[in-house]
Write a protein that binds this DNA or RNA. Structure first.
Lengths: 329, 329
DNA sequence: CCACATTCCGCAAACGTTTTCATTCTTGAT
DNA sequence: ATCAAGAATGAAAACGTTTGCGGAATGTGG
């Protein structure tokens, strides 16, 4: 039915081997025949059968991507970045969503592993001990998390937190709350760490307010705790939580930023659309996806130099309307 | 390296053919040997090589999904639905994003076609004449659009609009604006049609306000036109546009719903998170994804009965804070 | 005990490509 | 003219599975 390499071979008057070489190792065949083969191939509309190629080379030409929750607006950005870069390099991408269930992750990786040449894992919650065997079995790059001997691309959370604290300090705030995300999340620990050192450096009081789901409802739940903590500003683990805070503050008639300033993290699209628009620590999500693919392909070619493969991307504070100067009571 | 069907055959003391049959056509082999084979298979951790199978069967076990923009919160829902259903049926899903560029759609379909057994095409802007040859070439199911002789799953836009108009009428509104989405979009035409008939039935004046991008910025742009149109309520092509309207209204100090009522369509998560929360026509997005997969598999098995394969899902109005009774000036 | 249908299973071909190995052809040095 | 080295190509094996065909074993009715 479809046109095979033999059809091209016949048309070009050469053997199948030569067609194959002309198309995938051009330097091995004389320029003249190479051209003839190429013309025949495109004339017949030949495109190599992936299954046959995969059978013999053992590679699929596919990449896997695992994210905790596509509905979290943070992830479509990285999906887009990964898609775009993968397409440029002639890879197709399987996307899987774990619905924030950490146990589903390992299962999915297992299932995907056989169908892909490598995996980009956006999986902050799985334990390191579960992670490492998976990474040894299939080339794996971690996003948003660092684990020894596994390549990763992360954001510079520490510097992001430093910028946030500097901003709040400049506005006169002296006592600030942090609404934590999932306790088991690597980036949550990292952000907290960054906040602590920055707070110490600026002689700022840091109040840690529980750990909530990294979602809008988590912010709703935390809002009252924040108000009870008697702070003048609050940093949230991510924008969704920050938006929840904003919503609940409004419901309780707490003025932002008049009475309390709010800072989120991630800079999801939504954050610029609400009122007041959210001040937030922006991360180059799309770029992180692209970087992830590059690291992964690099890893697939040189399976050894894993430890060195690590990229940390810069973050920057985007100041909008949810932060303002401290009004002394 | 990996364990093959022959290893299992040797372990179970049968031929490769029998192993194959025991696993994929159980009724063809005696219960006793079937069990023996199965035990050997799972003991050795055998899993069939997809490439080899694909080479001989001509099928990949993969589905393709094409969406216009993953960043539009409407789509992650359908992606999730499709993923979930596909996984249940042992299919993996390639996801591709066209970035709202209609010409990219055809290209992507072509590229995907060879790697998948079927395609779910979401909200295509592509012309019917471009669509049909693609659908003939690869099993294709349309989401959010109906084209003759191509299976599709759609939402009952007409009834959704009827409900919206009934709601506004009950609140006393007599003159309503519609902010249209892309002119080439099937659902935009459908919604407009539903609105027109419902408006006529309720003796309501309908003012059509341009066509904008189905995004937040589109709503921003349309807001001033809406105000100039001297209406007391507005229906937007989708929630993102409605949120843009809300944002611009606030900026111009126009009270919602006091001065004007706003209705969106889709019920994306964000719509419940803003202030005032958005009244909107909810669609069962996740269910639409699942239905799409079911239709697609059905189509793959019976490539003929395309015309009958068509599902229309119910919508319902979710009333929140952005609509209210008409205050006579 | 035979004829025959039925069930179960093994053999071998086939899928379309890549790759090893051998062969032929070209080239340049002796 | 001869030979070696290297370039260019073809033949054939290999990848792991599915499946048509036929043979063996088993069961059934006469």
């Amino acid at each position: 039915m479809a046109v095979t390499i033999r059809d091209v071979a016949r048309d070009a008057g050469v053997s199948a081997s030569t067609v194959c070489r002309a198309l995938s190792s051009p330097e091995l065949v004389k320029a003249e025949t190479r051209e003839r083969v190429r013309r025949s191939a495109s004339a017949l509309g030949y495109s190599p059968n992936k299954a046959a190629r995969g059978l013999i080379t053992g590679r699929t030409g596919n990449l896997g991507l695992i994210v905790p929750d596509l509905a979290n607006p943070f992830f479509p950005g990285v999906v887009k970045g990964i898609q775009a870069r993968a397409r440029e390099l002639d890879y197709a991408v399987f996307v899987a969503d774990t619905d924030e269930v950490p146990t589903a992750e390992a299962e999915l990786v297992q299932a995907l592993a056989k169908q892909v040449d490598g995996i980009v894992l956006c999986s902050p919650r799985m334990s390191e001990s579960a992670l490492r065997p998976l990474a040894e079995q299939t080339p794996t790059v971690l996003l948003n998390r660092r684990v020894s001997r596994i390549p990763s691309v992360t954001f510079d959370n520490l510097d992001g937190m430093r910028q946030a604290v500097a901003h709040l300090t400049a506005l006169g705030h002296r006592r600030v709350a942090y609404v934590g995300g999932p306790r088991s999340s690597w980036s949550n620990r990292e952000r907290l760490r960054g906040l602590r050192t920055a707070a110490a450096a600026n002689r700022l009081e840091l109040v840690e307010v529980g750990n909530v789901l990294p979602q809008f409802t988590g912010g709703i739940a935390a809002a009252d705790l924040v108000l009870a903590a008697d702070v003048t500003a609050v940093v949230a683990y991510n924008d969704l939580i920050a938006l929840g805070l904003l919503s609940r503050f409004r419901a309780r008639d707490v003025d932002v930023p008049g009475h309390i300033s709010v800072i989120g993290i991630d800079d999801i699209a939504m954050s610029a659309m609400v009122h007041p628009p959210l001040t937030t620590v922006s991360s180059p999500v799309e770029q992180s996806g692209r970087a992830g693919v590059d690291l992964l392909l690099d890893l697939m070619e040189n399976p050894d130099r894993t430890a060195t493969a690590r990229r940390e991307l810069d973050t920057h504070l985007t100041v909008r309307g949810s932060t303002g100067p401290l009004h002394r009571p």
